[in-house]
């Protein structure tokens, strides 16, 4: 994962609540074997509507997605995060996120920023009034910066450090091999083991 400290640029006002991962990337895109090639599938169904905000040229090049509450609910598909990243988004600002989506986002360096409804609403109003408005997400200082709004957001130290340093989770855990092996010796003997193929 690449390290990420600060994200700044235009923001796309999606502003819908309960956006599920089936909308972010429909399931027929999940037949691919790769981690790439999903940009075209992003919001595929909604994009057919010319009035959908993603088709609005004024927001082209947006790096921040302004979403509604419970963003990323439903299916666990990490493809949703891959599709957003490939389409240029580096952060999603929303009043709340579904748990699995948040985990998936953090694993890939897409920053989930939780801001209350009022603050998210103000950001949406700003970029609707002027699509060229620049919004910045500063992970180091845990603040969002926009003209006239400067809210702080919460992100736990561990997640923040991982983003700032771009750490590989697996390499990190493999350092605790001794703890894992010690745990394994204490597991109850009745626990099931799948018969070898």
């Amino acid at each position: 994962m690449e390290a990420v400290r600060r994200i700044a640029g235009r923001a796309l006002p999606l502003a819908r609540a309960d956006v599920d991962t089936d909308q972010i990337i429909p399931s027929h895109w999940l037949k691919r074997l790769e981690r790439t090639g999903y940009a075209e599938g992003l919001f595929e169904a909604w994009r057919r509507d010319p009035a959908f905000v993603l088709n609005d040229d004024r927001y082209r090049g947006a790096v921040i997605l302004l979403a509604g509450a419970n963003f990323g609910c439903g299916s666990s598909r990490e493809h949703a995060v891959w599709a957003l990243l490939e389409s240029g988004f580096r952060a999603v600002i929303a009043p709340s996120f579904a748990d699995i989506f948040r985990n998936n986002a953090l694993k890939n360096g897409l920053v989930p920023v939780e801001l209350d409804e009022t603050t998210t609403g103000r950001l949406v109003a700003l970029v609707r009034a002027d699509p060229a408005t620049e919004i910045a997400v500063d992970i180091e200082r845990r603040i969002v910066e926009a003209p006239g709004v400067r809210p702080s957001f919460e992100i736990d130290d561990f997640a923040r450090t991982r983003l700032l340093e771009g750490l590989d989770d697996i390499a990190l855990t493999l350092r605790y091999e001794v703890d894992v092996a010690a745990y394994e010796r204490k597991r109850p003997e009745w626990l099931p083991r799948v018969i070898a193929p």
Binding site: H79, I100, N103, N104, T173, Y176, V180
Partner: peptide, 20 residues
């Protein structure tokens, strides 16, 4: 509970998962 693909790789490699 359900996990994403990066977490699948983590579990395959380590049989553990980091969770709050």
């Amino acid at each position: 509970w359900g996990i994403g693909t990066s977490e699948i790789e983590h579990v395959l490699a380590t049989q553990t998962i980091a969770q709050t």
